[in-house]
Design a protein around this nucleic acid. Structure first.
Lengths: 151, 151
DNA sequence: ACATTATAGTTGCGAATGCAACTAATATTT
DNA sequence: AAATATTAGTTGCATTCGCAACTATAATGT
């Protein structure tokens, strides 16, 4: 009765996240990129010429993390950076052809992990889970902002 | 239409987890412990005289992580380790009085964060979220095991 | 009983990340 | 237009974690 009684949302999420990182990092090893770098790539498949700061905001990571992730993606020749002509502080980021050719593989890896996580759930459950997680994410972000000097 | 289209379970969980760690670590700073160390403490509030390896299994973290977390908890005088008499390889871990006196605070911090995460959800939704996360956790752990040499 | 194997815990290492301090460029104020 | 403040990006630092190698004990096989 007392064992495993403590199953808070936070603890469960932490456990899932650790497993996710290990699994996806292993799957991505042949491509020379990490989970976080993959998430940057996913954003860049949808948007061209975004700044690093904008990417860090969309992923809710520190801009220093963005710098390093993007540096590695550039080293792997998956993206290129162009200094913005309008504002020379900004780097605009673009995916390369090589990244485009990897897109299908990456989507497969991501979908594979999602399907492992949701194995045994009904389609409705999957939808509900996504919706509730999105709700919780919004709450988490709002809290994070209000603890700083938000707007 | 294309913005924020990529909202995979894994990405949402990663975002929530990052916010969780930052928030709870900040709240725990006065106590000199981290989120992970808190999770160890939570287990130890329910069980006396458990081995480090057992604790690492219950939290699904590497045993090296357990070693370091428990070392720090010992440094903070929140737990003590006793070499098992039956098997001298094992360290049996016990919480101290000091840890007991912190229990209420820690539970409050944890509950506070959970209630931030679930703000605006109905009671039913909270139950469903916990249940689906537990389901996903089970899937994640099974996958992790089967990728090694499981049983 | 002795040799081999397995197990609990520790330590070194590399990778990742947030924070804070810094640089360079732009925006704002006076 | 000169001075000040803000912003994008980078870098140093401290912390954390998983993996792999190692030590010591214990369990198993012959």
């Amino acid at each position: 009765m007392s064992k495993n009684q403590h199953r808070s949302v936070g603890k469960l999420i932490s456990t899932i996240n650790r497993a996710s990182e290990i699994h996806i990092n292993n799957m991505l090893k042949p491509y020379g990129i990490s989970v976080t770098q993959m998430h940057f790539l996913m954003l860049l498949y949808q948007q061209e010429g975004v700044t690093q700061f904008e990417l860090s905001k969309q992923l809710y990571v520190d801009k220093a993390t963005a710098t390093r992730a993007i540096q590695n993606l550039e080293k792997e020749e998956l993206i290129i950076r162009k200094e913005s002509t309008g504002d020379r502080r900004q780097n605009l980021v673009y995916v390369t052809e090589k990244a485009q050719s990897l897109k299908k593989d990456i989507l497969t890896i991501l979908a594979g992990w999602t399907s492992i996580l949701t194995e045994g759930m009904s389609e409705d459950d999957k939808t509900i889970l996504l919706s509730l997680l999105h709700h919780a994410t919004t709450n988490a972000i709002r809290s994070k902002k209000s603890e700083k000097g938000e707007s």
